[in-house]
Design a protein around this nucleic acid. Structure first.
Lengths: 320, 320
DNA sequence: CATGGCGATAACCAAAAGTGATCATGTCGG
DNA sequence: CCGACATGATCACTTTTGGTTATCGCCATG
């Protein structure tokens, strides 16, 4: 059964006049006659009585007319629901975030929620590596992860700042990582932030030192408290610095001493809801003047278009 | 939106495999691809993700898949309801009956109700002339009326019997209508049985008498009671005769002294429910041996096919 | 590196649906 | 009573659609 025919039938059932109904349907009268005839054949009974005195519904026609409106309405409803979902106005979006949540992310999510109230935002706290797995398995759509990311993800760098060396007041003689020697390093929980751990290890190796890992803590503030207590040194992003603990900070003269976070998604993503979110993120980023963010220098040359994936996203935003 | 495409979509959404789904749908894989593509264009978004790793639903596809099954089911329901109505298995049938209800009619209706429990039978008691009007206005579908009927009705004679002259015991000298002279005639209520009244008048005119109308009564039994009391004569069908009142009955030697009843319907009727009823009536009539019914001699040459109206009804049943 | 599975694409063909012209019939006004 | 009009059916024809087979490109796998 064709919905077109059914609609024509409904109009004709209202008009009870082939000519008028055909005009309303932007159709010629023979075409409408044919459609109705087809429907009648499908049902196996006449739907209209074509008398000299006019066109009237038969009993079967009346039954169908009663149902047709409802059916057509449901059809439209189904269609428009699918369309809304297709425009990314309804649905669910899974967003992951790691330990380092910058203020940008909540702002973006608030903006997205306001713009697309029909999308259920599912926020999940998980380490970068897990996020990448979850993205691959479609348990997540967007991940706020530490950079760099594997090649099958496209990434939009969101923030980046230098790592600084935090030293107890008693260790003022240490000028940089190269001087750490036996000074224990207090780092974040390895299971949660494998990539930071690896990065720090690589950094130490670059300076030809391999300090012992003293403790793995859940947050930077805890690490700094331990540093203040003299338990060891730590590497923290510049923004985590606290001036009230008597800690000594040293800049690190090495390109890899960069703490970068980006939004990652499956390369080639085409779920409209996800694209909408990215658009949202993009505008939020451009609304936030670059000067207020840490300078961006993405490890993998910042966000490349990655095979022209997102059709409408302009990655050039970050060329400044 | 095409129902066909939607169904293909539903199957593909289950199978998640174009080739298999196409086989199930008895069409080739490119055809299915085309159908899905058409649907996707209509919705304005991809419904499936065609990865190297397989075919999966997009968010929009999942939304549509959830609704599609329901919509298709409703569509089938609507269709089959219309089909049932088209076969005359559901709906309403209006049946009229006059003062002369023969036992055949209840039997036919009982049979019809048993055979088509989905049809609501609306029985209405009304005089023949009103029945004919109601039939024309479609307020009635079948009328059990006195014959003859107007030309735009087709009729199936159901019963016919001779009228007899009923005389008070004191009027034994009257041999027939021609002798009535001033003897009052007790007839049925004219408003209810105009045609009988007219017939009797015509009969009197044929015998060159015009007896006064003494009383118009609601039923034959009342008329006979009045005859027995000596109030006048009456004309009643032979079956209405009562032997316990001392009434004298005289046969009437005239062709028009016939009391005929038939089922009438609009010539050219094509409502399946009505045709089903007529079929029912037909079988009931043939089940009842002709001998048990009064001999048929319909005033208008019995039931003529009347323009080949009822396609499957065999009017020849009454050719005996 | 050849192979096989899977969906897209191309070329082609048949069926369907649309169109304008015309017909048949019944109504109505003169 | 007759011609004009209205209405839906029918016809001949064109365009569109949907379907088929053959083939391609891609990727995973042995």
């Amino acid at each position: 059964m064709d919905f077109r025919c059914l609609n024509s039938f409904a109009v004709l059932a209202n008009q009870l006049h082939f000519g008028r109904a055909a005009t309303l349907l932007h159709l010629s009268q023979p075409a409408l006659s044919k459609q109705i005839r087809k429907l009648e054949e499908e049902i196996g009974a006449a739907l209209f009585r074509r008398d000299s005195s006019g066109t009237t519904l038969t009993a079967a026609g009346a039954v169908l007319a009663r149902d047709a409106g409802d059916l057509l309405a449901r059809c439209q409803e189904t269609l428009s629901r699918a369309r809304r979902a297709g425009r990314g106005e309804t649905g669910t979006i899974g967003i992951g975030f790691g330990i380092a949540t910058y203020d940008l992310m909540p702002r973006v999510i608030a903006r997205f929620r306001a713009l697309y109230p029909g999308i259920q935002v599912s926020l999940r706290d998980m380490p970068s590596v897990e996020q990448v797995d979850a993205l691959r398995a479609r348990r997540l759509d967007i991940g706020f992860v530490r950079l760099p990311t594997p090649a099958d993800m496209t990434v939009l760098p969101v923030a980046s700042e230098r790592l600084v060396l935090a030293l107890p007041a008693a260790a003022a003689d240490i000028a940089g990582i190269g001087d750490l020697r036996a000074m224990p390093l207090i780092l974040l929980d390895r299971r949660r932030t494998q990539s930071v751990f690896d990065q720090v290890m690589a950094l130490c190796a670059a300076f030809h030192v391999s300090p012992p890992i003293q403790q793995e803590v859940p947050e930077f503030s805890t690490a700094l408290a331990l540093v203040a207590s003299g338990a060891g040194a730590s590497l923290v992003p510049r923004s985590a610095k606290r001036d009230d603990l008597g800690i000594i900070y040293r800049d690190i003269d090495h390109a890899a001493a960069e703490w970068s976070v980006g939004a990652a998604w499956r390369t080639g993503e085409c779920e409209p809801a996800v694209l909408n979110f990215l658009r949202c993120l993009e505008t939020e980023l451009s609304a936030c003047p670059a000067g207020q963010r840490s300078h961006l220098r993405g490890p993998r040359g910042a966000a490349a278009p990655a095979g022209g994936a997102g059709p409408t996203l302009r990655y050039q935003l970050f060329s400044d």
